[in-house]
């Protein structure tokens, strides 16, 4: 990759449409270097699973993609927009809050701990941002919200508060909430790690349906079954770097990297 790659005007109609482009992303927390130059490209309709041991930087990396975590250097573009920063000469300066907020409307995020708004019903959670961020008329948003809740199998829970829903149901509402913004990219940060085993399946099947329907997704997960079934590409991170990537077949049948073999033998 040439050093000034991506700095020039972008090709308006590339052959395969790149949705997310990350280049040499570095991040440190104090003296601990968590990301040591991560580059990744995700094209439209692709589902990419990021796997790897705890502390390998997976979560930090996808949090950088919507600027919840501020990277120290590198560049990330989503849908051709530089995320979190503005180009000034040959330097990147942090963008205004308003612009960052606007960029985030193109990126859906599903958290490990759901983070639903507890003072709002399932439907209100889903339509909150369309109405109050995008300015969608309320009736239209309600229609969209109900359809999305139906899509994640919760048509009967529209008026229920999150506290009365199971973990799996809450996570499905959270997925609907993220989808409601019509994002170009969905990020999943270990979406099933906080769930009871018996409800993991219902969340994974919603995610599989999304993947099949052509949603562009980056999924940090420990669910190898999901990665094998739904991913177009699997990426292995270790110690702040991507050490191996490939198709699920390649990954689970003939991993090349010693570290990957070790990791998979422990987890499978």
């Amino acid at each position: 990759m040439e050093p000034d790659g991506g700095l020039g005007p972008r090709d308006p109609a590339p052959m395969t449409e790149v949705v997310m482009h990350a280049e040499d992303v570095h991040k440190r927390f104090g003296r601990l270097e968590v990301l040591k130059g991560v580059s990744l490209e995700v094209t439209k309709g692709e589902t990419v699973c990021i796997i790897g041991p705890s502390g390998s930087g997976k979560t930090t990396f996808i949090r950088c993609i919507n600027h919840l975590e501020k990277m120290d250097s590198g560049r990330i573009e989503v849908n051709g927009h530089l995320i979190g920063y503005r180009q000034r000469g040959d330097k990147l300066v942090e963008d205004s809050e308003r612009n960052i907020a606007r960029q985030r409307t193109e990126i859906g995020m599903v958290f490990q701990r759901f983070n639903l708004f507890p003072h709002k019903t399932a439907l209100e959670n889903v339509i909150e941002a369309p109405v109050h961020v995008l300015g969608t008329p309320k009736e239209q948003a309600v229609g969209l919200g109900k359809a999305l809740l139906g899509r994640v199998g919760l048509a009967d829970k529209v008026d229920v508060y999150p506290g009365k829903l199971s973990g799996g149901q809450q996570q499905r509402v959270a997925i609907a909430r993220a989808l409601a913004m019509g994002p170009a990219l969905m990020l999943f940060d270990e979406p099933t790690s906080a769930l009871d085993p018996e409800v993991i399946g219902e969340v994974l099947s919603v995610m599989e349906e999304l993947a099949t329907a052509g949603t562009t997704m980056i999924v940090v997960t420990h669910e190898m079954g999901f990665a094998r079934k739904a991913a177009n590409r699997v990426v292995m991170m270790d110690d702040g770097q991507i050490i191996e990537e490939g198709t699920p077949e390649h990954f689970f049948e003939e991993p090349e990297h010693e570290r990957t073999k070790q990791f998979l033998s422990k987890i499978l």
């Binding site: 907020a101 708004f117 109050h132 961020v133």
Partner: peptide, 17 residues
């Protein structure tokens, strides 16, 4: 919970909103 602010910002809200 801190996650509330993160969730709000992840759907495009500014700090004030």
């Amino acid at each position: 919970d801190r996650g509330q602010m993160e969730a709000a910002r992840s759907v495009g809200m500014t700090y004030g909103k």
